[in-house]
Design a protein around this nucleic acid. Structure first.
Length: 441
RNA sequence: UCCCCGGUAGCUCAGUCGGUAGAGCGUUCGGCUGUUAACCGAAUUGUCGCUGGUUCGAGCCCGGCCCGGGGAGCCA
């Protein structure tokens, strides 16, 4: 039993809420913030969060000195505090456990907190993103994101890939078609990268199997639930791998990431009311259709589309609705795809590429394919796309010195997290989303 | 860039036919020994996005602008 003091906190083991069950019957200290409070005259219920969970702490009038009881009555939302008390199992508590408070120390009194337990609009919450992160829903989503990234890295690390990160500043467009963010680089114009792939190719021809993982930037004025101007992409690249191997890798990778996150993050996913049966079905083999077959599926769904058109969001959803797990769509027309895609030797109008479409309307989560490895063919494609050949000198070198077939893909982390969590918008899958018209906070 | 919707109290919103604004929540104070977005009572809260116009009179009607949200194209 602690002696009552108001200035100096009790010295008991500092524990986190997610391990509170191991301390039943013991006196412990929690350090956290007031999430919510309810009061019933002679007792106060403090919902305390510490970053690992939310725990109910009960303050009985008879257990603490009068000034501490009065403090508990007047604590403002998000005030930081140190609580010491006895851990008890109690069916009436939301977590199954609660703490009977013996000592309560205030660290800082929060000013009137803008985000109340009631409803708020999206714009208000995004303006207060730095505080919104404290809510249990955002905590769940961003913890899942952390687990997704860990699973991605473990997958490639465990298969002998070397992490080879690409630069953020680049001198020219990787793909030429999309808009880039320009910055002043000591008097020269540099662009923020929109893909690490070209550099990953250099890595693959050096190390065999590599992946890069980092932020990428697209200055497109896209205003949709699937777009950010800054997003994170993981891009494996493998020498001596063809399109078939690329598809096998993408399939195995997606299965691994989804199944591992499903197992590790069950409690957070259930808190987000995610239908777990959808995730359980994400098992190999995934269905594979050619672009031409996909066009037929889209036509049967009632869309007017011509062979050669790329799929829009509605068409992608129409394709993925035909299947109960991710679907691989391969061999798009070359004119839909970037210059570095290798043409199919059996039909030069087709590119050796693959997109992975997630179920439930989440669209393209992976884009990749086999790269053009012939020097003269690649030069011709660069000219045909009106790209400056001099900017790609080093890239062409990869086709001069021991060129080999190679392939890879890029997976957008935010889209995968949105899909796994079943969120309506990618903006909640990254701590501080960057979108058209939103740079702050 | 295009299409649609919105901007009223700290927050979420209502505001009829054009007559200078209202609810819930929050906050503050009081009550309650088991609350679960607690409840009960009282108090508190306004540059109606900005600007110009119509009108005796504009939150409301008209023009311009700003900001935000949703969607398209493009992409991961």
């Amino acid at each position: 039993m602690c002696k009552v003091r108001t200035k100096e906190p009790c010295r008991m083991p500092w524990v986190y809420i997610n391990e509170i069950g191991q301390h039943e019957g013991q006196d412990v200290t929690l350090k956290g913030w007031l999430y919510n409070k309810r009061s019933s005259g002679k007792l106060h219920f403090l919902q305390v969060r510490d970053g690992t969970g939310i725990l109910q702490c009960v303050v009985f009038k008879s257990d603490v000195p009068p000034e501490q009881f009065d403090l508990a009555d007047h604590l403002s939302q998000e005030s930081s505090l140190i609580v010491t008390g006895t851990v008890r199992a109690d069916a009436r508590a939301p977590l199954g456990y609660e703490v009977s408070v013996k000592d309560l120390q205030l660290v800082h009194t929060a000013e009137s907190y803008p985000i109340t337990p009631k409803e708020h609009g999206v714009a208000f919450l995004l303006d207060h993103r730095h505080l919104w992160l404290r809510s249990s829903r955002q905590h769940a989503i961003l913890t899942v994101r952390s687990a997704v990234i860990r699973a991605c890295r473990d997958y490639f690390d465990g298969k002998g890939f070397t992490l080879l990160d690409a630069p953020i500043f680049t001198p020219a467009a990787c793909e030429g078609t999309t808009t880039l963010f320009a910055t002043d680089y000591f008097g020269e114009t540099a662009y923020l990268t929109q893909s690490g792939q070209l550099y990953a190719e250099a890595g693959a021809l050096a190390f065999g199997k590599v992946y890069c993982f980092g932020p990428t930037f697209r200055a497109e004025k896209s205003k949709t639930r699937r777009h950010l101007t800054e997003f994170w992409m993981i891009e494996p690249e493998v020498a001596f791998m063809d399109l078939a191997g690329d598809m096998d890798l993408a399939e195995d990778f997606v299965e691994y990431v989804v199944q591992r996150v499903r197992r590790e993050q069950r409690s957070h996913l259930e808190a987000l009311e995610r239908d777990m049966t959808v995730l359980e079905r994400v098992r190999k083999p995934f269905p594979r259709v050619t672009y031409s077959e996909a066009v037929e599926l889209v036509r049967q769904a009632g869309f007017l589309i011509q062979w050669g058109d790329d799929f829009g969001a509605d068409e992608e959803t129409a394709i993925s609705k035909q299947f109960d797990r991710p679907v691989l769509v391969h061999r798009y027309p070359t004119e839909c795809k970037a210059f570095y895609m290798k043409a199919d030797p059996e039909n030069p109008r087709l590119a050796l590429c693959v997109d992975v479409l997630a179920p439930e309307g989440y669209g393209e989560i992976i884009g990749g394919g086999q790269r053009e490895d012939d020097l003269e063919t690649l030069r011709a494609k660069i000219r045909a796309h009106n790209l400056p050949e001099e900017s790609f000198g080093w890239y062409l070198d990869l086709r001069r010195y021991g060129s080999v077939p190679h392939a890879g893909f890029g997976m957008g982390i935010e889209r995968v997290v949105a899909w796994i969590c079943n969120l309506p918008h990618v903006r909640e899958t990254v701590p501080f989303p960057r979108m058209l018209e939103r740079l702050r906070p």
